Amino acid sequence: FRVSEVISMKTGNQTVGTDFILLGLFQYGPMDSFLFVVIAILFLVALMGNIRLILLIQLDTRLHSPMYFLLSQLSFIDMMYISTTVPKMAINFLSNNKTITFLGCKIQTFLFLVLGGTEALLLGFMSCDRYVAICHPLRYPLLMSKKLCWFMVTCAWTSSSLNSLIHTAHIFQLHFCGYRVINHFFCEIPTLVPLVCQDTSQYEYTVLLSGIIILLLPFMAILTSYAYVLTVVFRKSSGKGQTKAISTCSSHLTVASLFYVTTLSTYTRPHTLHSPEEDKVVAVFYTIITPLLNPFIYSLRNKEVMGAMRRLWNHVHLYRNMTVGNFTD
């Protein structure tokens, strides 16, 4: 559909009012039902993968450590993160109304910034955990206490919530022009800035500053900490220890790189350098792909998690056999 056709679907004999029109990830057309099924499957797989990881960490006492506590928090954030954008996008494939209300757009923007910022900071804290565990193993129980872990999580949520509140309050008190057409599949700051009818150059500097603090600094901290980790590992550890450390760190670094590189690409460039089609493709990585892959990357490349899965499966299988045996008797 062309932009005018999408607008006409909403307007007809009505006025647009304060609603925003979402043009979506793809052009709406005869493939909408198929795309709805694909997006719905990806959404469910991401939810089930993260739920499985959270339950596994809660049920297996061997995973009750700071690393897996932070990982369970990451999975919880990913569940909410993907739920903020994907359901609305999926519904739009089947709906004739491709709009989102002013309040709905405001809530979506706020939640997306909160969850994205929290994930960015939490990934940074997780690298600190790995640094202490590998470089200072004897002091690990003292340094990475339960109290400190909760402080990290609270700090991540509080900082990102404050950042989100400031940006959401500011952008939505500005005046938007015309039909409020968002060439994207959800509401976020970079897609809203071009719709504002006044000069936003000063505000874009604050977005850049937030991107540096929330995204770039944690990413640099991750790269720095893992540089120290690899130095220590190759200097002191045996071949087996090196393999285990590299496996653990590479999983986290893969997730972090995928998330930070794509979000930095979106939030540290002025809107004049943005391409709507390119932005939508990049956004898929940090809104869908990352929450989808996180639980599988941390599971399949982690022997402790795989061992916990086998133990849980054995318990379930044993319980099922006992139940069937009692029923037969």
Rank of each mutant, 00 (worst) to 15 (best):
E5K: 13
T11C: 13
G12S: 14
F26Q: 08
S33I: 11
F36Q: 00
F36E: 00
I41H: 02
L53E: 06
L56P: 00
F69Q: 10
L74A: 07
S75I: 07
T85R: 00
K88A: 10
F93W: 06
N96F: 13
N96W: 12
T99M: 08
I100Y: 00
G104L: 04
F112G: 03
F112A: 05
V114R: 01
L115H: 04
L121M: 14
F125A: 11
M126G: 01
S127E: 04
C135M: 02
H136D: 09
L138K: 12
L142R: 08
L143N: 05
S160M: 12
S160H: 09
L162I: 15
N163W: 08
T168M: 10
G178H: 14
Y179M: 06
Y179E: 08
R180F: 05
I182T: 02
I182R: 00
P190A: 05
T191A: 10
L192F: 09
Y203L: 10
V207H: 04
I212G: 09
I212H: 07
L217M: 14
F219T: 07
V229L: 01
K240T: 12
K240P: 01
K244L: 10
C249R: 01
S251E: 01
V255K: 00
Y267D: 02
P270G: 09
D279E: 12
Y286Q: 00
T287M: 09
L292C: 04
L293D: 01
L300H: 04
K303P: 11
G307Y: 07
A308W: 05
A308S: 11
R311F: 07
M322I: 09
V324Q: 14
G325E: 15
